[in-house]
Design a protein around this nucleic acid. Structure first.
Length: 287
DNA sequence: TAGGGACCTGCC
DNA sequence: GCAGGTCCCT
């Protein structure tokens, strides 16, 4: 039994900077830290990090939240019988990316978009300074953030950003004006309401992205991003009377509040399992 | 508040 | 045609 499924974790729309270099081997970045991770390396021993191949000595404990229950789904299911009816998603974990700037811009790229294209866009915004040497150094990070507002709209459109080419540099400039990385780090101390209000004031950030950024950039695990998959799952589990209707701003709020009332600070974790179950169901053509 | 349409690109 | 949304307008 493997407590971590790297494919599920790294390709489920939580982070966008990982590739499967060879079967079972994943290469990518968390902020400035390069990682080369093997599925088989996790969870077989008491020290799950013992066999990891890393460019640096940094810990991936935080990234995979290994201090949290190994069987996250069961831990959450104990809080709600309806949630407990979800299919098992073995090895899926909520990630905890270290760099809020990376998550901020990653999710700016995700609106009305697909994974493959998102990955390309993120790489364009946050390129790897020394890929051949294993990635960026921490010192590169502020410079990369400062560079983003200098991208022109035509340039980004040519790079495949579509209509997001206009909003992303504007959002970047606003972020810098407010203090850049430190502004986001400070928001980690804010309440969810405060954080949402701040994030919603960025161009291109609506309720769903605000919650994604709160969850992944700010580590606020009360955040419940409601996309089409979570909407379908929430309707099926908790709001049968909404079948056949559409998601509105009001319902968006009600769903998040309901998850928080059931799961408290585990709401963000619960959301991930409902969301992922919906993605899997969608792939197999079921509902 | 709810409903409708545009918006880039790519894959079913 | 529609997608892991946002924004603007009835």
């Amino acid at each position: 039994m493997n407590p971590i499924d790297l494919r599920k974790c790294l390709t489920s729309g939580q982070v966008f900077r990982w590739r499967e270099a060879e079967p079972g081997v994943w290469e990518g970045y968390d902020g400035s830290q390069f990682g080369r991770l093997c599925t088989a390396s996790f969870g077989l021993q008491e020290d799950p990090l013992g066999k990891l191949t890393l460019a640096e000595s940094g810990s991936w404990h935080q990234y995979f939240r290994l201090d949290e229950p190994q069987d996250l789904q069961s831990h959450i299911a104990a809080m709600c019988p309806k949630f407990a009816t979800l299919p098992r998603q073995e090895g899926l974990r909520l990630l905890r990316p270290s760099d809020p700037v990376e998550s901020f811009f990653s999710f700016l790229c995700t609106s009305n978009n697909h994974l493959g294209r998102i990955t390309k866009m993120v790489e364009h915004l946050l390129p790897l300074a020394h890929a051949s040497e294993g990635g960026n150094t921490a010192a590169d990070e502020p410079e990369r953030l400062l560079n983003i507002p200098s991208f022109t709209e035509p340039e980004l459109r040519a790079a495949g950003f579509g209509y997001r080419a206009a909003t992303i540099p504007r959002a970047a400039q606003l972020l810098i004006n407010r203090g850049g990385r430190q502004y986001l780090l400070d928001l980690r101390q804010a309440s969810l309401r405060e954080a949402q209000a701040e994030l919603l004031s960025f161009p291109g950030v609506g309720p769903k992205l605000a919650d994604c950024i709160a969850l992944y950039a700010l580590h606020n695990t009360e955040a419940v991003p409601v996309d089409v998959h979570l909407w379908n799952g929430a309707v099926r589990l908790y709001f049968r009377e909404w079948r056949g209707t559409t998601l509105t701003a009001k319902k968006y709020q009600v769903i998040g509040d309901h998850f928080r009332s059931l799961f408290g600070s585990w709401a963000g974790h619960a959301q991930l399992f409902v969301y992922y179950a919906g993605v899997v169901a969608g792939r197999s053509g079921g509902n």
